[in-house]
Computed example of a mutant assay.
Amino acid sequence: MRHALPILAAIVLSACANTPGAPPSGGNDALIGAEWRLEDLLGGGIIDNSHVTMTLAEGGSAAGSGGCNRYFGSWARPSAGKLTLSQMGSSRMACAPALMDQEDRFLRALETAADYAFTPDGALVVGTAQGPLRFRKD
């Protein structure tokens, strides 16, 4: 009977483990280091072939492409499922007006990030005051 307890614990733990290939639910590891490519901006899609990205690095730095300019800042995960971005800045190159507008909406939304979740198919959805930002690993 003494040996049954470790075996039972191993069975229970393996049943609770994440599905292979799925990101860990709410875990930092799935967020950190990957380049996340924006596929939907506030429920309105994005301009075809625009390259909008976000990378959250170990240590709290955030950076990416807004589609025209590079941006940078800090990120934190104050509690499970919560995400904040702050101290945001960007380069100041001019692009086509439509790209500049999309980038402006994206960066304003990022600054109001409040939470995040992973969809069953592995997309990252960041909740902001303006609406959701949907990313996929690049």
Rank of each mutant, 00 (worst) to 15 (best):
G89D: 07
R37P: 00
A30Y: 02
G43L: 10
S90Q: 15
I32T: 12
D48L: 11
E35K: 12
A57P: 03
P120F: 01
S91N: 14
S25W: 06
V52I: 15
G43I: 12
Q87K: 14
G122D: 12
A109Y: 00
E39T: 15
N69P: 12
G27Q: 13
G44P: 05
A113D: 00
S91D: 10
E103D: 10
L83E: 00
L56N: 04
V125N: 05
G43N: 07
G64D: 05
D121L: 04
G127R: 15
W36K: 03
T119V: 05
F72Q: 11
A113H: 01
S79R: 11
S65G: 11
Y116D: 00
I7T: 13
I47D: 06
S50H: 07
L124Q: 02
D29N: 10
L31P: 00
A22D: 13
S90F: 05
N69I: 09
D115M: 05
F106R: 02
M88I: 14
A17I: 00
R77M: 14
A96E: 15
G67Y: 11
S86V: 02
D104F: 11
S14Q: 12
V12G: 09
E58Q: 15
R70Y: 06
L41F: 07
S90W: 06
F72S: 13
T128L: 08
E103T: 05
D104Y: 09
V126Y: 03
G67E: 08
A76W: 02
A96W: 05
A15P: 04
R37H: 14
A15H: 10
R105P: 03
N28Q: 13
Y116G: 00
A63K: 13
E111A: 14
L41Q: 01
A62L: 09
M54W: 01
G27I: 02
T112L: 03
A129C: 08
A114F: 00
T55E: 14
G64K: 10
I7Q: 13
G45N: 07
E103H: 10
F118W: 12
G26H: 05
T19D: 04
L124M: 11
G89T: 13
